[in-house]
Nucleic acid binder design. Sequence first.
RNA 1: GCCCGGGUGGUGGAAUGUAGACACGGAGGGCUUAAACCCCUCCGCCUUUCGAGGCGUGCGGGUUCGAAUCCCGCCCCGGGCACCA
Length: 828
Amino acid sequence: MTQAPVEDGTSDRYDPHAVQDRWLPVWDRLDLFRAGRRAGASKMYVLDMFPYPSGDLHMGHAEAFGIGDVVARYWMRRGYDVLHPIGWDSFGLPAENAAIKRGEHPATWTYQNIDTQAESFRRYAVSFDWSRRLHTSDPEYYRWTQWLFLRFLERGLAYRKSSAVNWCPNDQTVLANEQVVGGRCERCGAEVTKRELTQWYFRITEYADRLLDDMAQLEGRWPDRVLLMQKNWIGRSTGAHVDFLVRTADGDRAVTVFTTRPDTLYGATFFVVAADAPLAEQLCAPAQREAFEAYREQVRKLSDIDRQSTDRPKTGVDLGVVAVNPLNGEELPVYAADYVLADYGTGAIMAVPAHDQRDLDFARELGLPVRVVVDTGEADPADTGVATAGDGVLVNSGPLDGLRKEEAIAKAVEVLGERGTGQSAVNYRLRDWLLSRQRFWGCPIPVVHCPSCGEVPVPDDQLPVRLPDMRGADLQPKGQSPLASNREWVETACPSCGGAAERDTDTMDTFVDSSWYFLRYCSPDHEGGPFDIEKVREWMPVAQYVGGVEHAILHLLYARFFTKVLHDMGLVEPVEPFAALLNQGQVILNGSAMSKSTGNLVELGEELARYGVDAVRLSMVFAGPPEDDIDWADVSPTGSVKYLARVARLAADVGALPPSDARDEEVDRAVARAVDEATRLTESHRLNVSVARFMELTSALRKGVDGGAGAASLRDGVEALAVMLSCYAPYTAEEAWSRLGHDVDAGDSVHDATWPTADPALLVQQSVTCVVQVAGKVRDRLEVPPGIGEDELRELALASDAVRRSLDGRAVRTVVVRPPKLVNVVPT
RNA sequence: GCCCGGGUGGUGGAAUGUAGACACGGAGGGCUUAAACCCCUCCGCCUUUCGAGGCGUGCGGGUUCGAAUCCCGCCCCGGGCACCA
């Protein structure tokens, strides 16, 4: 598989593997990337989303960490004290599943993979500060995950409730809303079903407003689409809570609904309760009980996917009771239906078929009346089947008649308020974060269930609640955590009364672990708390976060939530953890995602063996903008190898030139231009264009060498190139640096060098190409001084032969002059 | 269905008043006993008297002296949400 080194036929060979073998041990010894090395320098935190240890690194890691490394190294070269840590998100389902399959312990599998990945990262030459390495499955780490959980519990932000939850029948565990994608389990793809279970939640909904409003700080620094996805996911809608009185067999009962359209209250012609909500059962008249239960059974059998399919006809059942409209006293029939969701709003709605499509569909299905109360100028929904949701003038609405929609909403809320039957309200699509999992390989929930004291938190000084070893035990998922079968572990003394009690047997969602790891990196060995507040103050927030868009509404939302809670606890200063975010694209192959199961796969290890680390890294960034997907079938690592060999050859040639002070203005200008542009381009993450500038500079320097240009200029130019390239292709840059005569072994590494600066005087061009257009078409090009005046340029342009020829005798109407770059001559 | 993002040579992609930088790929040439490596030239489409001319950034309009870029309407591709009242 390994290709013979590229023979360049001239003075020097460039063998990428030999270069790697030469410099890697030297770098290890020089310890170049430890945060805090540059005392007094400004601090900068550059972070890559930490990996999950499944097998060795793959092409996706190479892309993401390659980009992150360019960013980190760039700021190091710019003189910043950069924190660029690495760790592993090492709890989680895949470890457990793999372990079950291989009959191994999850820890064995996990830590073996971590070691493999760590060694691969080292060879891939990512500029990590290895002294801060952490694993979320270490007791030293999860002790503090538990500590944080207890703080959330104290603040009422962690709680247990019984509810219909997402259940993955394959993984045999509950899932958070965020982990259900299109009705399927995010991990395994199985269809998710519902189960009524008592589970632990984080009250993330309490932070919904701040999660939404603080996004203003992130605008322009996070990708727009991530902000938009979070905004839609939180889904704030404003409207009103309205209290209806429902006449049940057991007497009258107030039932509140949420609506965004209180203005349409007079158009309500029926009332609907979610069939699977406890409320439906409570309201149901005895005579209808049998029909209701049959319907509810039918609903429960539906999978989420079927239930959510949009073109399914609306179904429901009459509950045999009526709800009283608080505005006009009208009695409305009450239905149970599955198009109303139990866990959004209050699980009950007032139905206004004329102005809501879903209500209209239901009304037409069951032959219920449709009453227009907002005249929008459109045809009657009862005839067309199309509800009118737009603005208009209120009709058939008593005191609201004649008002426009917005006015009517305000008026309706006012009237409801006066009568004490409603008020304005805000509702969110966001649900609380279900964090408990019925699986083994996770952070134990530090709570004890005591028959007399109830839920008792484990005292801080008894943390961590260690995950028992359970080597050899059956970890097969069976619907409750395997921990439950370990009686020795489960049975414990109540921390409060000392009586016999049982540990909570669930473990936490791994997204809890990853919601604060970036804080732990600031002081990874801290023992007095999850992190050293002072160190966090020094480094946070993360200046540049790099990771995939797949975490747009999972990890990124949770980490933002955690940071806000910790801010409220006075532990963290910023309210946002990640000041800037870069979403790198995916590496795909022949148009589709790489996947082991379909065999559509390129192994990173093989590519590295074939082309070398630098060529793979360079190909990744040169292929296109960082945020775009890369189809590996379209890239040419061979081209990258050739380019890197050119650089090494150039450095050898220039390094061999006899010492001289001779300069060359043309070379100096080319270098200054490249430095100036590459600086801006790297800083704005336009890495592919930056590489193009390096290639141009390389060609210019080659031309200089072959043409006998001044040695001092050539030497400065290759040094500048080596330093800039060191962020992109660290091995080759070091090799070039060494060939220029730097004693790397003695500590003079290119990775400790300073990013070059461009002399502004050299950036001023002596002449500029001015484009001369006639009627907007380019007819001539003139070389003019950059400071040329408008009048002078106009005359010069009008005197051009090409312009005269093109005008062909026509008179000139106007001349647009934009010195020094453009003249547009407009004929009549 | 609703909400985003995007359509530029054979390919990946550059370009905010010169469309196609930089590459990949292709053609031709140099070096070589030969090949590889390396170096040079050319490659959007059409016409051409070789001077140049016409057409071109998904399609159709518009604004402007000037539009790949801004606006309107379509078409296609990708992504997010999906009975959220």
